[in-house]
Design a protein around this nucleic acid. Sequence first.
DNA 1: GACGTGATTGTTCTT
DNA 2: AAGAACAATCACGTC
Length: 164
Amino acid sequence: MAKKTNDSQGPVSSSATKTPEEASPRRMVLRVRQGEAKKRLSSLMRAEEGEKRAVSVKRSKTKQKKKGAKVDPNMPKKPPTAFFYFLEDFRKEFQEQNPDVKTMQKVGKAGGEKWKTLSYEGKVKYYDIAMKKRAEFDEAMSEYIERKESGEGDETEDDEDYDI
DNA sequence: GACGTGATTGTTCTT
DNA sequence: AAGAACAATCACGTC
């Protein structure tokens, strides 16, 4: 965790050379991907998603809750984005200041506004978390794929409870 | 009692 | 290049 002392300041302190605006968070975030697993991911994902897509027509208007998604406990779900992490913290604060407001809709709206007002420095913090999370997600996915390719119908343990 | 809904932005995939 | 889909959360509405 402390190892990021020198390189981590890339996004934040280097602002002297590059302005935060130029260093759009998106760009920086985009850099992390591209792994061997990614390739496999694409092919596998396509197949899996294809199944879902074919069956699913969701997205009626709102609510993207996937319903037909196979119940694959091994299949890692998309990790929350920086904004979601920001909301996590924002929620606490917001609830403290607005105990009356409990609905996430209000919080989401307020969070969205605040998020826009957040400075690059403030956002980069969450971006960093999200980035790391995505890295784990890729790794988890790769493992999941391997397992799947290895033996999909094997499934030895899922949640079987050993009495032992 | 259980499920879907609604609201926000970000990332990734798909075509 | 642009769009579509899905990610988490929680109160409320509906059946």
